[in-house]
Design a protein around this nucleic acid. Structure first.
Lengths: 199, 199
DNA sequence: CCGTAACGGTACCGGACGGTACCGTTAGTG
DNA sequence: CACTAACGGTACCGTCCGGTACCGTTACGG
């Protein structure tokens, strides 16, 4: 939900540039200092605006944070390169470090947004779902093509890279290395997807 | 480091029961409410003691938390059942839910202990290292026995289960299901360990 | 040109929490 | 029996931070 759109029909209009500065400032602070370090005062200072300008748009801090995370996201397209490994790499690389900060931001927020289940669910659904769904879609397509056997545990394998990315961000304060993502694809996903049925 | 052992040679001796109650209360609160929810006042209330009794033993909250996490841990023995799958299961189950709360506690703390690198490192080294080392040891032993090919990415695979456990605790507020651990072993670790060289 | 509302700035409120100080009481040691 | 230090209890301090209120100023619509 973008800024509360309720505003009188007359008077000085809101400056859209302020809105943008607030959101990017929130993203910066979330990425650098986590949820607790992202104070409203700090956001205001970085956005070069007043706290009032923030509370005019969002009623509470968690709502601002969700808006900032949502603004950072752009839904990826399921790749279809004709090669299993290339598809996996393309889908998995969304979780590596890149100019797209949505993964890093999501991890920062999810781990610290605390005990508010409603906001937690909102953030998870909006930002966490789609990229994992892309990985699931890729795997299922290659199952349909008969390249990957149908007995593999799709959900479990699709979660490997996102989970690793999450751990990296939360534990080591930095995004997953692209080379590590490549290793995960080559040494974990591909063997598990192409191995004959074990057990 | 247990309670500051500096205490005069005379006077009323410290009650060891109080110490124990403080540590278990801290563990309970960490597991249930995370690091921020573990306030000193709450620990004192649950331990049925005064805040002063806590600060008599530990100088600061992070030190108390590290002590509580450390107290919850007991170093596991590397299993050697003669069967690869059984060894992996035994080592991996340390990260599933059980009466041993050390994994859950570590996850709670690591994700929220914040920007104090010193305490972070201490907690990680003390509690996070050994269980992963057990997994590494198991895999390397089976490489030495020639059952697992030497080209597998040991560190990467040994981290799969711990990372999943961490994500589960932080994201879903509950420990990893034993059946999920079993699935990870069967559908991720074993295929990756036994697959022929890919790529 | 008047009304309205957003603007930056800032003072302020209220609650939470880490940590300290001091109480009278109690359990040990010499 | 005197001394000492831990005990539970509690009042207190300082700080941080989310959120509110109010300022004079500014930009737009009717």
């Amino acid at each position: 939900m973008p800024p509360s759109e309720v505003s009188g029909t007359t008077g000085r209009p809101r400056d859209p540039a302020v809105e943008l500065r607030i959101l990017t400032a929130t993203q910066d602070l979330l990425a650098d200092h986590g949820y607790p370090g992202t104070t409203i005062a700090a956001v205001a200072a970085r956005a070069r605006c007043s706290k009032a300008a923030i509370y005019r748009r969002w009623t509470t801090k968690p709502e601002l944070v969700v808006a900032a995370v949502r603004a950072a996201q752009h839904v990826p397209e399921p790749p279809d390169t004709g090669d299993l490994r290339e598809d996996l790499l393309a889908a998995a690389m969304h979780f590596a470090e890149s100019e797209d900060r949505s993964g890093v931001l999501l991890a920062s927020v999810l781990s610290e947004i605390g005990r508010d289940p409603e906001l937690y669910e909102a953030a998870h659904r909006v930002v966490g779902g789609p990229p994992v769904a892309v990985l699931v879609a890729v795997i299922e397509r290659w199952i349909a093509r008969g390249v990957v056997p149908p007995h593999v545990h799709v959900r479990l394998l699709a979660d490997v890279v996102p989970t690793a990315a999450f751990g990296s961000v939360v534990l080591r304060k930095r995004a997953l290395d692209p080379s590590t993502v490549e290793e995960l694809v080559d040494f974990v996903l591909l063997p598990a997807l192409t191995a004959p049925g074990v057990r």
